[in-house]
Amino acid sequence: MLDFLQFRGPWDVVQLAAWVVSIALLLWMLWDAIRVSKQYSEDVLTSSQEGVDELALQQDAHKKS
């Protein structure tokens, strides 16, 4: 039943490393997403506006100044 714990060669180590790195990255993204959701309100996180060109706005502001 615990065959997967048997060491059969270097590729077992590579496979194990792949599982560990994958799960670590996925958990980090999940943790970060939860952290951000707690830190910022939904109104701010979902406030993006389609078609807003920040660069154009900056250029306009620069021209006016």
């Binding site: 792949a18 994958s22 990255l25």
Partner: peptide, 10 residues
């Protein structure tokens, strides 16, 4: 499978 998951997670 571990490499499939590795690719998508990275």
């Amino acid at each position: 499978r571990p490499f499939v998951l590795l690719a998508v997670s990275v």
